[in-house]
Nucleic acid binder design. Structure first.
Lengths: 243, 243
DNA sequence: CCAGATCCTTGTTTCAGATCAAGGCGGCCT
DNA sequence: AGGCCGCCTTGATCTGAAACAAGGATCTGG
């Protein structure tokens, strides 16, 4: 169900590290691979394969066997979990430089779907697992990153359990801004590659509440809603609202 | 603020592995240490120190430097995060066999408080870190465990964001039951070492809603409220309610 | 045995956000 | 153009859980 729907366009990067070798990779210093020496990088590169996914394509599906792990080099992805009755919760959004499959699981616990055209560096899980076993400091790096993710999950739980709609939305915008900044995107205009429904499912709200809250923030000149995103007009006030 | 309030009673377990050596430890096979050979276990043991905390004592506090990591060998602990304005969220409850400080953080991201009399196996973080660096399969084990925790955090987010009060409470009871079962406690009567307020703060509810929901489940003969816990009378129905 | 404290339950009222309902807007296809 | 579709907004109403309020139960120490 996955590879057919997304029809990924595979281009190996093995052939003499032609156009997109790891050494020139734009996420080289912000992602997990930053832990590696150039020798190790070469080894990692030999395992990698660039794959492009169309918008709305599926990278992998909840409960399916995890055949690979991924490093996003272009585009954004939504990560979600489904309940049998159809309710869904969006765990989060993965951006450029994010690693999917950090925990090296046997089966994926979430579904990953491309929000835009997405390019990933794909590693066979077995081969990556082997490399990790042989390179403890790569594992260390992975583990650090997992600890960081755990902290983010804790923030999110507090947000979901103990905060109101406005706080949630403000906080969401600020968090996204901080993440963009970390990968070098510091524009005042915040791209929102996900739809309102995705934001709602991420914050435990309904689409109407998200829309109303954004509209209110716009009316109060805290943000300005623009096509494809929002402009943050009054950061201090937004920070005040977001806690 | 921490060591004074809990007045921990320290007993080293170095002295000729007197009463409580790792080899005879009751959490030996259910905890992280299960990854180690007996040689490595001896080394680990030389780093460990048993510490007893009184009920309501603080093991460590949010934002304070993480001087140690812990393995719980007796009792239960609540893990919480505070908001500047006083709201609190209870991240979860740690039981016998649980490891605190999995991510080996520089600073603790949560506060840990003893719910009952708690005994922990305490490891200096630096020393433990060194051991981990030298024993990749211990790190691997830690990482696996972190991945598992991440999965639990995801479940909890879905619970907080997309489920009603009754679902939350039923699910909480079932999750606790499963965890007790994993450490060999399979009694029909579920101990609840935490108070109603803690449950409320864990589920994103108020104490009144938790109390009412439990009362209703009791009235409908799904559970029976007993001092210090609940008896699970109608497991199928509870599972139906909990999703 | 009583005073005070802590924790839990129960009743009543209020409110934030869900739900229901109806457009609006822009893109895309023919 | 026109019509359809997906996405977003806005308004009206409803409701589940919060907030407020008042005891009751259990424990502790004097």
């Amino acid at each position: 169900m996955s590879s057919e729907t997304c029809a990924p366009d595979e281009r190996s990067c093995r052939h003499g590290r032609s156009e997109v070798g790891c050494a020139e990779c734009k996420v080289r210093f912000i992602s997990v691979c930053a832990a590696l020496t150039s020798d190790e990088l070469a080894e990692l590169e030999s395992l990698s394969r660039h794959v492009v996914h169309e918008p709305r394509g599926t990278l992998f599906t909840q409960d399916e066997e995890a055949s690979a792990v991924y490093n996003i080099t272009e585009g954004s992805v939504r990560l979600l979990r489904l309940l049998p009755d159809g309710r869904r919760y969006v765990m989060g959004f993965a951006l450029v430089g994010d690693f999917l499959g950090l925990a090296l699981p046997e089966r994926h616990t979430i579904t990953a779907e491309a929000l835009s055209s997405v390019t990933v560096c794909r590693f066979e899980r077995r081969a990556f697992q082997d490399l990790v076993t042989r390179k403890p400091h790569l594992l260390q790096r992975l583990h650090e990153r997992a600890g960081y993710e755990l902290g983010l999950a804790q923030d999110q739980m507090l947000l979901l359990g103990r905060r109101g709609a406005e706080e949630k939305v403000a906080n969401f915008l600020l968090t996204l801004r901080r993440r963009y900044a970390r990968i070098g995107l510091t524009s005042v205009t915040l791209e929102l590659p996900m739809g309102r429904q995705d934001i709602a499912d991420h914050l435990g709200l309904t689409i109407e509440t998200v829309s109303r809250t954004l509209t209110r923030l716009d009316r109060e000149k805290v943000i300005l809603i623009v096509p494809g995103g929002v402009r943050l007009l009054d950061l201090p006030r937004l920070e005040h609202l977001g806690g």
